[in-house]
Amino acid sequence: MREWRVSTPLSEETVRGMRVGDLVWLSGRVVTARDQAHRRALDLASSGGELPVDLSGIAVYHCGPIARREGEVWRIYGFGPTTSARMEPMEAEFLRTFGVRMIVGKGGMGGRTADALAEVGAVYAAFTGGASVLATDSVERVISVNWLDLGIPEALWEVEVRDLGPLIVAMDSVGGNLYREVASHAAERMGRLLG
């Protein structure tokens, strides 16, 4: 088990060195995207359009913040992760299209995302679900917000963070997958319990 203090942009070499069970404290630029933002980003890319923010080398955070506009600035009051499984139908294509090096979320993702992580060189890191105040403490500032027409939770929030963590590397780029291990152990145990 290793501990990493890293800043975005992340290199492929760095994330390929990460293994499941490692802890990460992340600094730099992260961009939130939930299912609606994933859909719009992919639609935009497939029609040759350009995203309002650059995602290469950064972490995409599955998060719909609590945010309130105070004068000229947006202030974040809640910054915990949302359930990543909702993005599963789009994440593999998202990883291949935008050069993201880390997905931060909760609850894990499926086999297609796992394959894409290995292919492009990226990891899935879990932040403790519901630990919104701890995540909020890592927020330095809101750099930009786009696609507010999707609503506050679904918009694309570009945020500078310092030491967002501990993140637990739960799916790595060499096939390590804590969720799959846990699920297969649980299925085996259920079989024994019910005979």
Binding site: L23, G78, T128, A131, P166, I168
Partner: peptide, 27 residues
């Protein structure tokens, strides 16, 4: 990892209460 997660949860509960902030962003 389980202890680490529960530590984060318990710390989050304490901080939310102390500072009057929502426990979770999904209210």
């Amino acid at each position: 990892l389980a202890r680490e997660i529960l530590n984060s949860i318990l710390k989050n509960i304490e901080e939310a209460e102390r500072r009057g902030l929502p426990l979770c962003q999904d209210t």
